[in-house]
Computed example of a mutant assay.
Amino acid sequence: MTSMEARIGDATRAVPLPFPWNMNAYLAAVAAHRGRSISLRQVPSEMLAERGCRGKGLWIARNHDDIIVYDADATERNADHIILHEIGHMLLGHGRSEDEPTAPLPTTLAALLPSLSIQHALGRGEFGAEREQEAEVFADMTMVYATLPRKKGRGMRIFGRGR
């Protein structure tokens, strides 16, 4: 088992997928697990591009809650993937440490968000290639496993791997 497999396995065991699949129920379970509320905010892709997110998504960790910002023009499936990608970062422990500086939000994006203290605002460019790959695999696998029929003892496995 690779270390990525182990980390993703730990994350999926920490917050199991609801059956039947429901994104709101999953977000509530992740929030309960982390002890922090999670809210979603749609914004025009241009605002995300200003932050270097290429119109995808952004995780904003504030002092007591998290906001996932995503492209308002994304299809429902794509929006779900973006949200799960950011959840992957949360559950995989990819947050920025307190001693690392965070870049300020562009003025247009900051104007849409409540003005509470931001611990970090992390887009796809700030996690590094390995963490981005982990979050992407987490989102891909979550979307696949969320649609499969429930089987006792089924856990997520990296694509292409046998039992």
Rank of each mutant, 00 (worst) to 15 (best):
G160Y: 04
G35E: 11
G155H: 13
F127C: 10
R34M: 15
M156P: 07
T2F: 12
P18W: 08
L17T: 12
R62W: 08
L84Y: 04
R150S: 05
S3F: 15
K151N: 04
L40S: 12
H94Q: 13
D71M: 07
T108W: 01
R161S: 10
T142S: 01
G93V: 07
G128A: 04
R77F: 11
E132S: 00
I68K: 06
P20L: 14
A29D: 12
S117F: 14
L113A: 07
A111I: 02
L148D: 03
T2D: 14
L91F: 11
E86C: 06
D71Y: 11
G52T: 08
S37A: 13
P106I: 02
G9C: 06
A110P: 08
P106Q: 01
K151E: 12
W21I: 05
R150T: 03
Y145D: 11
L116V: 08
Y26M: 02
A32M: 08
R77P: 05
A146G: 11
M141F: 06
R41E: 11
I68L: 10
G153A: 05
E130P: 02
R7M: 06
L148Y: 09
G88C: 06
E126F: 04
H120K: 03
H85I: 00
A74C: 05
V144K: 13
Q119H: 15
